[in-house]
Design a protein around this nucleic acid. Structure first.
Lengths: 217, 217, 217, 217
DNA sequence: CATGAATGAGGATTCATTCAT
DNA sequence: TATGAATGAATCCTCATTCAT
């Protein structure tokens, strides 16, 4: 076997990097267009303008390997946009808002990547490595930290469970994305560029909310 | 062809009903365990303890037909538990809470069914019929109505967009489900039986929240 | 096995005869509509309004058995119409003309039967019995006798080989039939009712023709 | 997909050409031997000495694709022999004779090809493309032109309908072919090499025939 | 008489992967 | 580096036939 994507790397030639990138991009398009179940190496090769399927096998150990690379690439791209904005936010609540808004903006501008990511995570079951941690689990942990910080920052007397909120936040982002894809032809499609602030508002309200001391619940 | 799911209905034998049920249950298990992409009629047959794949084809016109039956079955089960509780709730806010709690309770007791449903909706691309409306779209519409009613009920001065909230609610439910599946082996798995009230609390807070006139935002 | 279509017959009950006929007629329709390759016992059963395929197996030993019955039935029908007219003709030449015209008239009125017959003879290869003689071979022999008789009758000095003429006659009949089926949607479809006399004229001319003693050929 | 028979042509490797040819030849043998209904890719593969069925799918997009190639190949071969002789004939009547004789000579030397062609045209129902015009329809049109020309050439007072004659000619050719295949084991098999001139004689007589002014008919 | 159930072989097709060049 | 060739398993599906009731 020639290709190798393990931990201890050898150098990659320029051609190799370019080819891999070309293939990964073709895979993203294909996944987004056809879905995981209908995506084959042959179709990816055709999308990439490659004459043979063997070419992919040459650069990637297996289909799973390619899928993993797609995942990594897409996640890295998202992190590159979302991460700095979260880290540059003044305070935890602002960071949470930044996370939500940046996520939805990124999603809005990278439909194919997100669709591909979605297809991979829902279409594949066999984990390549144990290190390939679940996207959602990681995201939830990160968001939960922001939520916990924000509630602390706000000094809420009866805080919500950060992980519950975090899962809701992630769910809201995911559902908004999915809705956008599905309502594409609808009369009132979801406008992702406006969705971010609205979702942020929603969660900010729940975090800011102070239970009425004499309230019913 | 023997199996028939068209308009002009035929009587169904006892054996037929039993077999179909047996196959549907096997399909649910297989989908939940392997995911849509890895679920084949052969694997379903093996799970069902059937000797031949042809047996499935005998009772279902096609794989799509079987998947549709799975979908219908699971949705009917969920509706039977969630629907009455929502309709029996005193008021819209209570109905929203009932919806969330009942959903999570049902999910908690029917992990495999929900996973199967999830796999079908995300894994299949070719819609069987246009009438087979997207589960999420329908759910969002229903929840949005509850949200709108609740906000009206509460007399909130600056209400949130009901559809934004609805998508967040659905997202929270889905993510909680997914989290439960994925964290099965984890140290702190999600306890779905407690998750419902917490998610309901979260959204109730955001709906009850009255912006401070002199607040920072 | 219950059904039996061998030579030494036992009595057939009324129901049995009726059922067999019903099935044979359904087979003819199906063959004519779908062609041999697409005709299955299941489809024949559905066409016949029978609920189960087993019914056919009950009355016919095998698919081949049913096909043989279809063949026999159709041929008997044709013979019943063509035979008397040929035998009643005044003279051999007239008999040949009667054969051609009656054949085409019968074909014109029994499209489905003829199509079914055509499908069976071209679609199936495994001979059921050696006694199931080839239709064409038999027909050619019969026509050849008429041709030979006609030439004798006319006293042609340099007669044509009767079998050559006979094969041409049969070919003309077949091709006319096929042309009718294929040109159904065409602008100038073949009118089978007029085709008979024309084909008869054609062959009568070739039989009547007396070579010019001083001619080139 | 590897095989390609679309518009945008790709270079064909030496191996590819050889393999395709090998498969086409195997298909011809199988069709001729078993008939269309019994011809499967598996049997063709076995005939071709190929270990796997997948091999055929690798070189041909579908079974229909392969059948189309068989058709094209056989027709091209026939045209290459018959065409020049028809076009080189001195006059229309001579051309008609050349057509008949050349056709039967070609058929005599290519029994399997012709049988395969016959099986394909009669066994398949779903037309690949509308441009794939029916062989018989085309042939009849060509022959009809020759017939019309010949009658004009001969200056016959009461000419026959050229299309009627053309269909008869085609029918005679086809029936002679079929007869040859079926009478292979017979005592007096048809000798196709002598059949051509005889059939030509037959039709020449009918074209040359001048009705007797005082004749019976 | 009739039917529904069941079976298992065989149909075409797709695909990931390996290999020789 | 790159490519085309080849393989064999697995996909869904159809079908003729058998059998128990």
């Amino acid at each position: 076997m020639h290709a190798d994507n393990g931990a201890a790397m050898r150098e990659r030639t320029f051609t190799e990097v370019a080819r891999r990138d070309q293939i990964v991009r073709a895979a993203i398009s294909t996944l987004a267009e056809l879905g995981y179940a209908e995506t084959s190496l042959g179709k990816i090769a055709r999308t990439a303008g490659l004459s043979s399927v063997g070419m992919i096998s040459y650069y990637f150990d297996s289909k799973a390997d390619l899928m993993a690379e797609v995942r990594t690439t897409v996640l890295a791209g998202a992190e590159a946009e979302v991460g700095p904005r979260v880290r540059g936010a003044p305070g935890k609540l602002a960071a949470l808002r930044a996370y939500i808004e940046a996520s939805l903006e990124y999603i809005a501008g990278h439909t194919a990547e997100m669709a591909a990511l979605f297809e991979i995570s829902s279409g594949r079951r066999t984990r390549v490595e144990s290190t390939e941690e679940d996207i959602e689990a990681v995201s939830v942990r990160i968001v939960a930290e922001l939520v916990a910080g924000a509630q602390e920052e706000l000094g809420i007397p009866d805080p919500l469970d950060p992980r519950v909120v975090a899962r809701a936040v992630r769910g809201a982002i995911r559902t908004a994305t999915a809705a956008r894809v599905q309502e594409e032809g609808s009369a009132h499609p979801v406008d992702l560029s406006r969705e971010g602030p609205r979702i942020a508002d929603l969660f900010e309200r729940s975090l800011r909310f102070v239970p009425d001391p004499g309230g019913s619940r």
